[in-house]
């Protein structure tokens, strides 16, 4: 089966600062891969690289069949990157936000509604301004935006941060459901116990390089 992510000896820089130094990684469709490693090791950079946001200086990178060296912008509409921020507009309602992000790829009203229902954002929350939501509800709204955008590859940076125990369980269930429905998930996390139980595979990022680890 063709891999969703295939990085071979990738070197990437941010400004003049090298953030990935010969990283190689292969991820198959439907996998949930945990990236672990110390702060500054390159986990976030690896996610941003897969989202087509970093310039590749050396090596080869293929994500969802797109050669990132040739055209990294072509992959962007097919991946969903959820970093430390949620990418939401605080003054707009939950429904406004999901509708907006869905509209960037031409999602229908039914798809938007379906994405909200899948994330447990019922009618009671749909018309609430994002500024009035809890951290967990904002995270769920952001995930609904990824679903509405039909993201094939979910790149999540510390997705459990700021969530209570119930919110974490809910998020894990959402990610498992996403993977079982054909999406591929890569999670960068320090919470090894939590994210480790979720992952089908763990890879360690150290000093901009990637090493496979046993679960």
């Amino acid at each position: 089966m063709e891999p969703v992510v295939e990085l071979v000896d990738v070197v990437a820089v941010l400004g003049q600062f090298p953030v990935l130094a010969g990283a190689s990684l292969r991820v198959a469709r439907g996998e949930i891969v945990l990236l672990r490693g110390p702060n500054g090791a390159g986990k976030t950079s690896l996610l941003r690289l897969c989202a087509g946001l970093l310039v590749i200086r050396r090596g080869s990178a293929n994500v969802l069949g797109v050669d990132l060296v040739a055209d990294r912008s072509a992959v962007r509409s097919r991946v969903g990157l959820l970093g430390h921020s949620n990418g939401l507009y605080a003054d707009l309602t939950v429904a406004d936000n999901v509708r907006f992000w869905g509209a960037t790829i031409g999602a229908s009203a039914d798809e938007v509604l379906g994405a909200m229902q899948r994330m447990g954002l019922d009618d009671r929350l749909a018309d609430v301004a994002v500024s009035r939501l809890s951290a967990g509800q904002r995270r769920r709204t952001a995930l609904a935006c990824l679903v509405a955008r039909r993201a094939e590859l979910w790149l999540l940076d510390e997705p459990h941060a700021g969530l209570d125990a119930a919110g974490r369980d809910e998020l894990d269930a959402i990610l498992r459901a996403a993977a079982s429905s054909g999406a591929t998930v890569i999670v960068a996390s320090h919470e090894l116990e939590r994210a480790g139980s979720l992952a089908t595979r763990v890879v360690e990022v150290v000093a901009g390089q990637v090493r496979e680890r046993a679960l």
Partner: peptide, 12 residues
């Protein structure tokens, strides 16, 4: 404020 510009770039 919440990284929406970054998200717009990722959304292509």
């Amino acid at each position: 404020a919440d990284g929406a510009l970054d998200a717009l770039r990722v959304a292509g």
